[in-house]
């Protein structure tokens, strides 16, 4: 049986459909492992993984760390804020120093797009991208698609709308690539200023009216407005954004059909999504988090299993 076609997970771009399906099948098994009394398997007991985070994260870092520990890997954590990076050390030096301590894999989040790709060309370890700037966040896209597959049985033919700050979102790009690869129809929805000009070339529809977009879709993935990445004002006020693109219970109940609501987190309650929607039975936000661990276990297992 063939494994993944890639040695690193830098982006969905590098994965073919067979890779994604292999990851999902493996994640299915890990999900059942996670529901056992003992949630740990010994597969990666001789593998050491460094989680290197140059940017803040709660879910992704915890999820990766749990996935690594459930696979019995040895884990070291590194946060740029408390490291020598602030003293002027370069990325390659930092990582090579970590690798000199016999680390096999690196899970990295970095504020700059392409940081993972750059690193994969200059260091020996296998790299897993846990988010690079506004570029890609492959494991998030995989767990989102996995959650849709779990809910509907299949991703192919499903209509998914991604709402919000598409311009600054690595989740959006990875999601589009992953969903398209699996045969879903994808639409993006948001203010004109937050939709990249040539997004249509990825084969997605564009809609600026939230109600129309929601009536079209089976699944709505509501993204956070990434104020930390916005150097200029892209819309007049958050209040106006919420009025035009925020999802509330009234809108949800007024739709012709029952759609599924997703959110990659962290949620800004009351901005892109209200509390009653986030906590409603149509929301699978917490299932996404649960699936995140199983999907990351699958990715790490499949990558680590390649002969060193």
């Amino acid at each position: 049986m063939a494994g993944l076609s890639t040695r690193h997970l830098l982006g969905i771009k590098d994965l073919n459909r067979a890779d994604i399906e292999l990851i999902f099948e493996t994640a299915d098994t890990f999900k059942s492992v996670l529901n056992r009394p003992i949630k740990k398997v010994p597969s990666l007991r001789d593998v050491t993984i460094a989680n290197i985070f140059f940017e803040n994260s709660t879910r992704t870092r915890l999820s990766f760390e749990l996935a690594e520990k459930r696979l019995s890997a040895d884990v070291v954590n590194f946060a740029a804020s408390s490291s020598s990076v602030s003293k002027g050390e370069t990325l390659i030096d930092t990582v090579n120093n970590i690798l000199a301590m016999k680390v096999d894999m690196v899970v990295m989040r970095h504020p700059y797009a392409g940081a993972g790709i750059f690193l994969s060309k200059h260091v020996k370890a296998q790299i897993v991208n846990a988010g690079d700037g506004a570029h890609e966040h492959p494991t998030q896209a995989l767990l989102d698609a996995f959650s849709i597959r779990e809910k509907y049985g299949d991703v192919a033919g499903k209509k998914v709308v991604i709402v919000g700050d598409i311009l600054h979102s690595r989740v959006a790009l990875s999601n589009i690539l992953c969903l398209k690869q699996l045969g879903a129809e994808v639409m993006v929805c948001g203010p004109t200023t937050l939709i990249p000009k040539y997004i249509g070339s990825l084969g997605v529809k564009v809609e600026h009216n939230l109600i129309k977009a929601l009536n079209w879709c089976d699944v709505a993935n509501m993204l956070r407005i990434q104020l930390e990445r916005q150097d200029i004002k892209y819309f007049p006020s958050l209040r106006e954004y919420t009025m035009l693109f925020g999802l509330n219970k009234t809108i949800l109940d007024s739709l012709d059909k029952e759609i599924t609501v997703m959110h990659p987190g962290p949620i800004n309650r009351g901005v892109e999504i209200t509390s009653d929607v986030a906590d409603s039975k149509q929301s699978i936000i917490l299932d996404q988090v649960e699936n995140g661990v199983a999907v990351r276990m699958a990715v790490l297992y499949l990558l680590a299993g390649q002969t060193p």
Partner: peptide, 22 residues
């Protein structure tokens, strides 16, 4: 019972074995 994750030849073959259902 699937034993894939408990095998002692992980990382000693070309690619990891695909697990079966437990």
């Amino acid at each position: 019972l699937d034993i894939t994750f408990y095998r002692d030849d992980f990382r000693r073959q070309g690619s990891p074995l695909v697990p079966n259902q437990t």
